[in-house]
């Protein structure tokens, strides 16, 4: 059996194909999309010998199960989770050889939310506007996995890293999510008390969070200016404040323009942890310059 493909046995709660996203089309309303935890994607790709931008699977909470039709090198990273090959435990966070026709099971996340599964050669679905990522806001890219779907794999360069000595230790999902935020561009739409609230009070990750945004529960941010803002361009990490005053941190599938004021922007380096924070995780914003 030399068919370079994966059969989906169990798709899981939400498993999507992701790479490092689409750039250059925001002016047409195309979100950047891409993996929510890009550092994890780079790492698992390096472990299997892929270019860092190769397409991988992003699971959500429940994991998934796959049956490769060819022997393939696999690495699982991101949220720690049990990995099994034909029922036997296999290593997480390192390259594993999976024989053709065997069952690869990615278990439920033990900590965190999203595991990343890289395959030697990468997931080779047709790119759309330069990316293989599934964009759940606008429906671009391949649909989320369903049971019995078949995903093509690219040719494996055979460069898997057996001993990942240069792999940075994964910090693990946070007990408390600390988000460094640079105020602006619309912090002047909020009262001084609201800006103090943002900088000092505790929020919690809402279960309504998704790939579009990290929704937060906690004290409402009161506006100093009434009225509506004309729609303006939005960036990754923007902390948008809708009329209910509860901040939403924009993640990869965020809309490219929006009409609610952005009180600040979270550092990109902190967003991977945000993508792994389970609902209920305490969140603290730390204003930075």
């Amino acid at each position: 059996m030399s068919d370079r493909a994966l059969a989906v046995v169990r798709a899981g709660a939400l498993t999507t194909v992701q790479d490092l996203g689409r750039t250059g089309y925001a002016h047409l309303g195309v979100p950047r999309s891409g993996a929510l935890d890009p550092a994890a994607v780079r790492l698992v790709n390096r472990l299997v010998g892929n270019p860092e931008a190769a397409a991988v699977l992003e699971t959500t909470v429940a994991g998934c199960a796959l049956r490769p039709r060819c022997a393939v090198t696999v690495a699982v990273g991101g949220a720690p989770c049990p990995v099994r090959v034909d029922g036997s435990p296999a290593a997480w966070g390192t390259a594993v050889r999976v024989p053709a026709g065997s069952l690869l099971e990615i278990g439920a996340a033990v900590r965190g939310l999203r595991a990343y599964v890289a395959f030697g050669g990468g997931i080779d679905v047709e790119p759309v506007l330069g990316s293989r990522s599934t964009d759940l806001l606008s429906g671009l890219g391949p649909p989320p996995l369903v049971d019995e779907a078949v995903l093509p794999l690219g040719p494996d360069a055979g460069a898997a890293v057996r001993t990942p000595v240069d792999a940075p230790p994964w910090p693990g999902p946070p007990g408390e999510l600390v988000l460094r935020v640079r105020l602006g561009p619309r912090h002047d739409w909020f009262t001084a008390a609201a800006l103090r609230t943002l900088a000092t009070r505790a929020y919690r990750v809402s279960p309504a969070s998704n790939r579009i945004g990290l929704r937060l529960e906690g004290p409402a941010l009161e506006r100093a200016l009434p009225g509506e803002l004309a729609s303006e361009g939005m960036v990754l990490g923007a902390v948008q404040v809708p009329p209910d005053g509860r901040p939403v941190v924009f993640l990869a599938d965020h809309p490219t323009t929006g009409g609610y004021p952005v009180v600040g922007v979270v550092r990109e380096a902190d967003l991977g942890a945000a993508a792994q924070a389970v609902p209920g995780t305490p969140v603290r914003f730390v204003p930075v310059r």
Partner: peptide
Amino acid sequence: VREIVPAARTVLLDG
């Protein structure tokens, strides 16, 4: 510049 996003009364320059 990675993205140039015009809007109603603004232009965003990202990246």
